[in-house]
């Protein structure tokens, strides 16, 4: 690695991961994300996209290879330590504490910060998400799908992460709400936070991403600029295994 160049915000080296050691789902993935980059991970169902990001976050066992955060090896770090190192993860489902209030969801994340910083940081996040601020005492379980996703993102931002990983944030949301969520993610990325996004909503994800990688059967099959990916026939074949007409359907 070049000593003069900053290390990648996030990187994996020959990463092998899966729930069972004998059945790896992610098979030797090497990938890097530069600081302040927004990368989307695409791939057909069962490709191992979610498993890859869960393994990086510490929710799925890593059987071989390594994961790095800003050059530091986080392969063996417990899940709660990764947050302290600056890695925030927003799972696809059950990504908020439904029985806690909005305030308690944010306070829970803030509890790992020094006590003197907690209130100010929560106030900053409420400024980014005024809808949540207005309902801070409401039980999070009463929020709509879009509001829940916003709360999950807001909670992840509390610790000022260097890297934010989201697993299918558009799942189950209406197109209008997806637009709002993705627009907010773009703002967060523009503010300097590196984002890694796993998505099935190809069109919306490519519209905001700098780069896209495609995972097929647990292996990295393509890595390139997002802007050119949508019209790349090789990628369409890899990703969809179908004709361009099929690709339109997937969108």
């Amino acid at each position: 690695m070049n000593a003069a160049a900053p290390p990648p915000a996030l990187a994996t080296r020959a990463l092998v991961a899966g729930y069972e050691r004998d059945l790896p789902i992610v098979r030797g993935v090497d990938f890097e994300v530069a600081p302040a980059e927004l990368v989307v991970i695409l791939g057909p169902n069962g490709a191992g996209k979610s498993t890859l990001v869960k393994a990086i976050a510490g929710l799925v066992p890593i059987h071989a290879g390594q994961a790095f955060l800003a050059g530091a090896d986080i392969t063996a770090s417990p899940v709660q330590e990764k947050v302290r190192h600056g890695l925030a993860f927003v799972p696809q489902t059950e990504n908020i504490f439904a029985t806690l209030t909005i305030q308690d969801n944010l306070q829970l994340a803030a509890d790992i910060l020094p006590r003197s910083e907690q209130a100010a940081r929560i106030a900053e996040v409420y400024e980014l998400f005024p809808d949540l601020a207005a309902r801070r005492s409401a039980c999070a379980g009463n929020l709509s799908g879009g509001q829940r996703q916003m709360l999950a993102v807001a909670r992840a931002l509390i610790v000022k992460p260097s890297v934010l990983i989201l697993d299918e944030p558009s799942a189950g949301l209406s197109p209008k709400i997806v637009g709002e969520v993705f627009s907010r993610l773009k703002e967060i990325n523009t503010a300097g936070i590196t984002i890694v996004l796993v998505e099935q909503n190809v069109k919306a994800a490519l519209a905001i991403a700098h780069r896209a990688v495609i995972l097929v059967e647990g292996e990295l099959r393509h890595d390139g600029p997002a802007a050119t990916l949508a019209d790349d026939p090789i990628v369409a074949q890899l990703y969809l295994g179908a004709t361009p007409a099929g690709r339109e359907e997937q969108r």
Partner: peptide, 23 residues
């Protein structure tokens, strides 16, 4: 804070870890 962590772990242990709670 520990009470909040306990309620969080009670609801969703995996998510609590992701949020930084030492389960």
């Amino acid at each position: 804070a520990i009470g909040r962590s306990m309620r969080a772990v009670s609801e969703n242990q995996a998510l609590a870890g992701v949020v930084g709670v030492d389960v």
